[in-house]
């Protein structure tokens, strides 16, 4: 499998990134190189091998359902580029 320009356009879209034509060329080549390199894994027999989900054997890590104070709103919004009426503000969301 190799990465096509169409693939790169698609994944740039999914990633919310704009690419110039030149960048599209560049990334297509670079990603193809990397993906081709990664294709060496297809030579390994992984039949019946369980994928690693966690490197540590962990399970059932839970928290008690106990309320702790939340943060001040000013703190929560401190880093927001645009805010209004105690909220983060964004351009109109069209459904």
């Amino acid at each position: 499998m190799s990465v096509s320009k169409e693939d790169v356009k698609h994944i740039a879209n999914l990633s919310k990134l704009n690419l110039t034509d030149k960048e599209l060329e560049k990334y297509t080549t670079e990603l193809s190189d990397i993906v081709n390199f990664a294709n060496e894994l297809s030579n390994i027999d992984v039949d019946g091998i369980k994928p690693t989900a966690h490197i540590l054997d962990i399970k059932n890590v839970f928290r008690k359902d106990e309320v702790q104070p939340s943060y001040d709103r000013e703190e929560i919004l401190k880093n927001a580029p645009s805010k209004d009426a105690g909220c983060v503000s964004v351009p109109k969301v069209v459904e």
Binding site: I76, D84, A85, G86, C87, V88, S89, V90, P91, K92, V93
Partner: peptide, 14 residues
């Protein structure tokens, strides 16, 4: 998401 009728923007309450 709250529509802000005054500015036309959308406000996010988390």
């Amino acid at each position: 998401l709250i529509h802000d009728a005054y500015t036309g923007d959308t406000l996010v309450d988390m």
